[in-house]
């Protein structure tokens, strides 16, 4: 019984193939980042200075960390509108509890409260089968209001050295950065490992790509989804800690655009809003694109509102590409 000739795939080409490089999912985002860097380097002599490059990284810490959680949720074909608000709640929690129990207790309490928000999202999505968009819109609204009540609409300066630890400056001369940047890189490295090197990571892709097929393959889809939301809670707590390192004041009105910025970073980074495809490497590039764009436009004197228009256009272009690629592959 020989297999039919049509079953045979064309032989794989080990030689260098330009079209293959162009079809790498990270080619677009990486190209856009390099292009943006070149344009701003030409437009502003200050752009490539070590100080400015370090500043871009530091400005990207909070959104960059949150975007890791967002990537996981979007990979499962969901979306998280509450992660930014959860991180803000985390900063208030840290600032208000540090006085009574010390920094370590405050960090643990914050971790638990952020994970609790993740657990609520996860339960509503898995047990009650509600759409993640609506669920997280609800928790976003509730968490934001709870944060205002909890903070009494006041801001809280933080002096504790543990809570501001991630703002510690390291390096020499003008080439300085903060510990927060290393935490950012660490969060990406750990998540990259989990997503690409472990079975749990595969299952995230599988659940996002085709929930039915994943279930038929014996994957506990609800458990996979739930753990993604819990993970997002952990990420929000880490981002809250990093935020106090960047600006040592807990402000219930801070990071208003952070949540949308995470979605922007994820989508620009090539992760599909339809789930099942994408990577945290892409999200890191997406985060840097947003960071470079905002920083560069500021350097050349473009107003903040125009920057928002620019990032908005970028998201729509990225989503259009995703749609187009998806339609072509199906």
């Amino acid at each position: 019984m020989s297999s039919s000739p049509t079953m045979a795939a064309p032989p794989s080409k080990p030689t260098f193939d330009v079209s293959r490089v162009l079809h790498q999912p990270l080619f677009g985002p990486l190209g856009a980042l390099i292009l943006a860097v070149i344009i701003f380097a030409v437009a502003s002599p200050r752009f490539l200075s070590p100080f400015n490059l370090s500043l871009i990284l530091q400005q990207s810490i909070v959104v960059g960390i949150l975007a890791v959680g967002q990537t996981l949720i979007i990979l499962t074909a969901g979306i998280d509108l509450s992660i930014g608000a959860t991180a803000v709640l985390g900063t208030i929690m840290l600032a208000k509890t540090v006085g009574s129990g010390g920094a370590v207790a405050a960090l643990i309490a914050t971790l638990l409260i952020c994970m609790a928000v993740g657990a609520v999202n996860g339960t509503l999505v898995t047990v009650f089968k509600l759409p993640p968009f609506i669920v997280t819109l609800g928790t976003f609204t509730a968490v934001s209001a709870a944060t205002q009540l909890f903070a009494g609409s006041a801001t809280y300066p933080v002096q504790d050295s543990v809570l501001t630890f991630l703002g510690t400056s390291i390096g020499s001369g003008t080439a300085r950065t903060t510990l927060g940047v290393f935490v950012l890189i660490l969060v990406y490295a750990v998540t990259w490992y989990a997503l690409t090197q472990t079975a749990g990571g595969r299952h995230i892709y599988a659940v996002g790509g085709s929930p039915t097929a994943a279930r038929l393959a014996g994957i506990k889809t609800n458990r996979t989804l739930f753990s993604a939301y819990i993970f997002t809670g952990v990420i929000a707590a880490i981002a809250a800690w990093a935020a106090l390192g960047r600006i040592p004041t807990a402000d219930p009105n801070a990071f208003q655009t952070a949540n949308l910025d995470t979605i922007t970073a994820v989508v620009i980074g090539g992760t599909s809003l339809f789930g099942g495809r994408g990577s945290v490497v892409g999200t890191l590039i997406g985060t840097l694109i947003v960071g470079v764009l905002r920083n560069g436009l500021t350097l050349v004197g473009v107003d903040n509102l125009y920057q928002n228009i620019a990032t908005g256009v970028l998201v729509i272009v990225a989503v259009a590409f995703d749609q187009f690629a998806r339609r072509r592959s199906s």
């Binding site: 079975a199 595969r202 299952h203 892709y205 599988a206 790509g209 085709s210 039915t212 097929a213 994943a214 038929l216 393959a217 014996g218 994957i219 099942g276 495809r277 592959s329």
Partner: peptide, 24 residues
């Protein structure tokens, strides 16, 4: 083992990942 009619594979994952899905 059961093979289902609706092509129960994950399109974006590679062949090996699909074969070993859930039994990595």
């Amino acid at each position: 083992e059961t093979v289902y009619q609706d092509l129960a594979v994950i399109p974006a994952l590679d062949i090996a990942s699909n074969v070993f899905l859930g039994r990595e």
